[in-house]
Amino acid sequence: MGNSSSRITAQDRAILNMKLQRDKLHIYQKKIQTILTREHEIAKECLARDDKPRALLALRRRKYQEQLLVKTDAQLEALEKLTSTIEFSLVEKAVLYGLQQGNQVLKEIHKEMSLEAVEKLIEETDEARAYQREVSNLLAGVMTNEEEDAVEDELEALEREVLGARAVPAMPDAPSMVPISTETSEGAGKG
């Protein structure tokens, strides 16, 4: 108690006060319960002594105490309900706080994901892609000596093929020209 760094809130004190009242009612009920038993015993003792009026009186007092007990029961219930409600409200408050915090975080995330930022990002991506294309084009223009040699070799081979084909009479060319004019071969080709 008396801590300067107290973690006890005003609600805690309110709850404590209600619970203390509840305890008092509990103790009061215990007291009434003993009176009830005692009055019952007294009534019995009086009857044994043939003292009917006294026995009746004891039973009447007992009845009255019983009513008190019922009343305190109702009060106890009311107190406990109120305490539970407050405790539940505190839980709700905590949940609300949690939701608020979550919302805040969500807002911050959205702020970072603004349309502008997204557009800019896409723009940047487009630029990056254009850049990539440029690089590819540049790279395509630059070839190593080996590759250049290989390409030249390939050209030579191709030339030999083409020139060689012209030196020798082109045998396969002749028949390929003939069937164009004949309709039968065309139909057979289609069939």
């Binding site: 107290s6 973690r7 404590l16």
Partner: peptide, 10 residues
């Protein structure tokens, strides 16, 4: 944390 007064402690 214990708090309250005298016999009425929580």
């Amino acid at each position: 944390q214990v708090f309250g007064a005298n016999e009425e402690m929580g």
